[in-house]
Design a protein around this nucleic acid. Structure first.
Lengths: 250, 250
DNA sequence: TTGAGTAATACTCACTTCGAGAAGAAGTTA
DNA sequence: TAACTTCTTCTCGAAGTGAGTATTACTCAA
């Protein structure tokens, strides 16, 4: 496409077939020690009755605003809600191949979200079912959402390695054990408690002590744990690498 | 946006304001030891005379196909060209905030490309100027392309750490020194030759020996170097981390 | 009240990786 | 032939890692 025709065509939108732009959101959270994703059940064709990622059309707003608005609508949280503001949202990638939606060409800008524990979602104004679903139970989503979810999970697993975003799954104060449970849930593997403890405390700016402890031990015993809050690091150095990746690399 | 209204609106594209979808490409290459990016000079308003990233409207094709087509058009390479096929292209991110293009709402899906040495670009059928520009000389691009370029550079720098994509800047056979020059150009720092050598050879699947050597030493002396080709790794483990990131992390 | 079990935290130890530096060999140009 | 450059291989101490152990403080249930 040349510069001139770009210029002219831009003033004549009908020169190109219509394209719809949506955001779809892969919001992850931890419930009962397992990684869950927010899914809706589609009430209409195509893919009626199938589960899908929440999403919708982009209005006169930025893409990030569209994603946060959709998140608020689907979780039933008020836009001003504190819990909503603590959800980390970042752009994942864009899916726009012809034919991914049978109705028309739809460009879907996918966002990835990390949420702390949220109440059960109330369905929006319509009758659509909304629920947190364990990612291991997800099967055959609508459209190309299986791929979107897989991309989101891989991004999430990688992000936990070299950013402190695992904190986004927790409240403002947390224990090292809770943080370790986040890593275990996202990565799907158990981690060595002693080594994890040592690593988290050795990375500058990952967590900082509040001075307090939990008011009681764990559910099945054990001493009280010290409480930490988020530090000011935006990257982890050194990173916390996933174990046993040797085989998968090649 | 609710499921029903989504469904209905999708059958009535006029229910939403028109959106144009383009791809813009950040193609990087190494020339004379410096990192260069392919830029065009805009022939028309807006931003007439300003440099911009090459790009254009998405037609009835996948996004990746659109990016490769634009790349071929702007570099003047034939679509079947071998050099073109060796350019690594991956999606960077999507820029779609209102107002980023004064004419209408434009969603730009940016792609990032790593190219081996290519001939000087011949401008396409139109008069637009196309050229490789050292990234350090780039200043005030059109639209939000400064941000796109900055995002692309950061992605490129990070990708070199944990993927073998630095090879994409080189030909099918290369020396460790040439690979080191790629890293130095992209990261903008000199690297310890001995340590780099050790690391590259110690990462499984990064490079494999061809058994041959260069036919003569370097331009300013030194022995002949052994030749290597790409190995089969898709991720580097352990990674080659950038030096001196301690300060930037927080 | 006590005992069994659990988890937080802090060690040790062998191994790997890293940055910095040095050195030898093999090539270049002047 | 001399001066210089670069490839390649070492060495050494510092730092980081996985696996395991130990101590202590808590839980629940008998």
């Amino acid at each position: 496409m040349r510069a001139e025709s770009t210029f002219l065509a831009a003033y004549d939108p009908t020169a190109f077939p219509p394209v719809a732009v949506t955001v779809d959101i892969v919001v992850l959270t931890i419930r009962d020690g397992a990684l869950h994703v927010l899914l809706i059940e589609r009430a209409e064709h195509p893919y009626r009755g199938r589960l899908a990622l929440p999403g919708g059309f982009v209005q006169d707003e930025t893409l990030a605003e569209a994603a946060r608005r959709e998140l608020a609508e689907e979780t039933g949280l008020r836009p001003g809600e504190a819990a909503l503001a603590r959800v980390h949202l970042e752009q994942l990638r864009t899916y726009g191949d012809p034919g991914r939606d049978p109705r028309m060409r739809v460009m879907s800008v996918a966002y990835l979200g990390f949420a702390p524990s949220l109440p059960d979602p109330r369905a929006g104004g319509d009758a659509a079912t909304v629920a947190w679903v364990p990612v291991d139970d997800v099967l055959e989503l609508a459209f190309d959402h299986d791929i979107v979810l897989a991309d989101g999970l891989e991004r999430a697993r990688a992000k936990l390695e070299y950013t402190p975003l695992g904190r986004a799954f927790l409240g403002p104060e947390f224990t090292i054990g809770e943080l370790r449970a986040v890593y275990a849930a996202v990565w799907g593997e158990q981690l060595h408690p002693g080594n994890f403890h040592r690593k988290v405390l050795s990375v500058p700016g990952f967590v900082e002590s509040t001075g307090g402890t939990t008011s009681r031990g764990g559910e099945r015993g054990g001493p009280r744990a010290r409480l930490y809050r988020a530090g000011d690091a935006t990257l982890l150095h050194p990173a916390l690498l996933r174990p046993t990746r040797e085989e998968q690399v090649r």
